[in-house]
């Protein structure tokens, strides 16, 4: 199967800390790849390298056959990103922001439809600064879809959402996959990984400790068991 995203032997060090220590995984085209790992495993650093916000000290990153570091606007238009920190301007209202961001694309999706779908219309009159964590998540997810991306990077998209909100997000992510989009989701939730993943990556201490289809990774055991046995402190 061809891959839309390939990270090969990535090393990235911050001071004395090796955030990525020979990280290798790939995300197959048109599938959902879930990346699981404890805090500090290097998930966010890996996503930053994949979207061109960071550059590995060593190793190669390919996204849609392009090196994302300083890639051009056409490449960035093909990649949708939802960052953990959000990155949304604070002083504006949600729909004004989405309309603005949609103008950066030649043929964006219908802003009102996406906003309705993610419930952004329910808090349209609140400035971004005053949104709850869950509302910000929905808005950031809506923003990531505006340019009809071929690859979608979602850094913990359902974190902080209530059960209904999580279900909405999962349905939407599955829909994107069904429309042919490659999705990479980082998560701490076994439930999320089990529900969504066509392809599973487990990271620990800057490396990949398991990768494959969910069945091949778990081998009949529960995902939770496999995860803890691979990521407990001292596990190699």
């Amino acid at each position: 199967m061809t891959s839309a995203v390939t990270l090969s032997d990535l090393h990235r060090t911050f001071g004395q800390v090796a955030a990525l220590d020979g990280l290798t995984w790939s995300a197959p085209v048109g599938r959902i790849t879930a990346v699981l790992g404890p805090n500090g495993a290097g998930k966010t650093t890996a996503i930053e390298c994949a979207v061109g916000l960071g550059r590995p000290d060593r190793g190669t990153v390919r996204v849609l056959d392009t090196d994302p570091w300083q890639a051009g606007a056409e490449h960035r238009a093909r990649v949708g990103v939802m960052l953990q920190a959000g990155g949304l301007p604070n002083g504006t209202r949600p729909l004004r922001l989405l309309r603005h961001l949609s103008r950066l694309y030649a043929d964006p999706v219908d802003v009102d439809a996406v906003a309705r779908r993610l419930g952004v219309t329910d808090f349209a009159s609140t400035t971004v600064r005053r949104l709850s964590g869950g509302q910000k998540q929905r808005l950031a997810l809506a923003a990531s879809l505006l340019g009809r991306p071929e690859v979608l990077f979602l850094d913990e998209p359902a974190a902080g959402l209530d059960p209904h909100g999580r279900l909405d997000v999962w349905d939407l992510v599955a829909e994107q996959r069904d429309a042919g989009t490659t999705v990479v989701v980082t998560t701490h939730s076994f439930e999320e990984a089990e529900r969504l993943a066509d392809h599973l990556v487990i990271m620990n201490a800057g490396r990949t400790v398991a990768e494959g289809t969910p069945d091949s990774v778990t081998g009949g055991r529960s995902l939770e068991d496999v995860y803890f046995s691979l990521t407990r402190k001292g596990a190699a």
Partner: peptide, 25 residues
């Protein structure tokens, strides 16, 4: 699980022109 499909590039958006992007921002 769905069957894998190659993204149909004709339905993809692409970037607006640099002039439009900068004017919008």
């Amino acid at each position: 699980m769905s069957t894998p499909t190659t993204p149909v590039t004709s339905t993809r958006s692409g970037a607006a022109s640099p002039r439009r992007r900068i004017l919008a921002q």
